[in-house]
Nucleic acid binder design. Structure first.
Lengths: 265, 265
DNA sequence: GGGTAGTGTTCAATATAATGAACGCACAGT
DNA sequence: ACTGTGCGTTCATTATATTGAACACTACCC
């Protein structure tokens, strides 16, 4: 993971950056976010990222000064400023506000657990959660990531991509992450579902990420030029889920998606 | 806010940074987070931060590459990576998980709107929100900031600081931000309340940030060595609020605070 | 104890990122 | 059409951040 043998595919910085210090600082943040414990030492970072210790030290000083990281003894951890910045990003997404407002007044959805998520590469990031149904409490939190193949929103979102791009991301024989016995196993299985999703206009997840739980999801037509791809999902217990309830929820999800897609609401 | 008249108090970089590019990149993110529209042009940033355009251009390229910002035409906005990083920070705070678990099973709190916040300089940042009471929906979101003088959690948190530090942050004649007629006006008024808060062990906010709304809050004894200062608050409508209900909520808040303070809780 | 392996820090030399003036472009005004 | 003002980009130069080897420190182990 640290040393690439011969080729320099992605050794350190792939090519030269216009501001290497910034690129490396970002790599430090990523490394911290990716590390299981969330805490690494200067030496750890220096080793993993292939940055000399002295340079790493400088980076950390600057990052600490900006409160993007904190240090507790030898350990480095993400800083609270990141919460602010993440929140600043979300607060600018009008869609989130609209999402809450709609859920509250929707006949069926208002009693359910609804989420809005965005596509980020091969993952989905949850942006906000509406909980009208105290019985079902999700363990996932805002900002959490989930592979697209494992959730209804993920499938709904990649169904919007061009076949070409999907094929590139998910070759037929690609092994997918597995969480339950019903999780999709290969790129081929995933792609097979997309046709139906496009036709029906919504995606269904049958205990593929959590046993006992089903999900319905739709994607939101991209508003504006370059906004993120957004999706909406409802989560329900398989035990209490009924076809006709599903039909109604999909109807409301689609309505919300339509209204989020039209800038003038 | 942009131009300092004569003195160079905080002009550009106060002193030299060990990695100026990083410090400036952080300044760019701050500027974007602080800007009302959330979007600025390269020239705007260059002007506001006093960074040459060519350097700014380099910074933006690196930041964009790290997906810490996005560009839509000429406009620069915060990037989605920040949501991930903010979430990564929060996911490492065990206190947040514990907070949810406790709220769900607490006799009184489980039906109320409860929040956990952290002290960040002169502000409080909301980390998580439990909504047991669908009637009261807060407009504030996770990650939002609020001046300490305007909310019960803020007051509870600074009551834990040494008098010396409080006096430095809030001189008697310091004007405080005002949101309602009942908002505290001066540093002196704020400090006067701290004595009672320390004695009682909780803070009360009587329509000081929102008319019609009251808040109760306690601070959490700092767990571990260098963790953030955490606080808990319950929000209620003044119309339906009763003394005895308040007493019970404070009791539960204190219990939660105690358990959050004990690592083995 | 004295050795070893691990921290993070220091400092002078050099490779390199920051700079600002000039450039190309797009747009609005007259 | 022609200017003026705004944008972001380019490029050679210089100031500067990065570097690695040596250092100081702690903790552990035999």
């Amino acid at each position: 993971m640290a040393e690439s043998p011969v080729a320099r595919t992605s050794e350190g910085l792939g090519s030269t950056s216009p501001a290497p210090a910034v690129t490396r600082a970002a790599a430090v943040l990523d490394a911290l976010a990716g590390s299981p414990a969330g805490r690494l030492t200067l030496s750890d970072l220096s080793r993993e990222l292939g940055i000399p210790k002295s340079s790493t030290s400088n980076l950390l000083l600057a990052l600490e000064d900006a409160r993007l990281i904190t240090r507790q003894g030898n350990e480095v951890a993400l800083g609270r400023k990141l919460v602010e910045l993440g929140a600043a990003y979300l607060s600018r997404l009008d869609e989130v506000q609209e999402f809450y407002r709609y859920c509250e007044q929707a006949p069926t959805l208002s009693g359910e657990t609804v989420r809005i998520a965005m596509l980020d590469g091969e993952n989905v990031i949850y942006l906000a959660r509406y909980e009208g149904h105290p019985a079902v409490r999700l363990t996932s939190n805002i900002g959490d990531k989930m592979p697209v193949s494992l959730c209804a929103v993920g499938k709904a979102l990649i169904a919007r991509l061009h076949d070409h791009d999907v094929a590139e991301m998910f070759p037929d024989d690609r092994q997918l992450p597995v969480l339950t016995p019903k999780s999709l196993r290969t790129g081929a299985e995933l792609k097979a579902q997309l046709v139906a999703i496009r036709e029906q206009g919504y995606a269904f997840e049958d205990e593929e990420s959590t046993t006992g739980v089903v999900c319905l999801a739709v994607s939101v037509p991209t508003r504006g030029a370059h906004g993120p791809s957004l999706g909406l999902s409802v989560t329900a217990l398989k035990a209490t889920y009924s076809e006709e309830q599903g039909t109604q929820m999909v109807k409301e999800l689609k309505e919300l998606a339509r209204s989020l897609g039209n800038p003038m609401g």
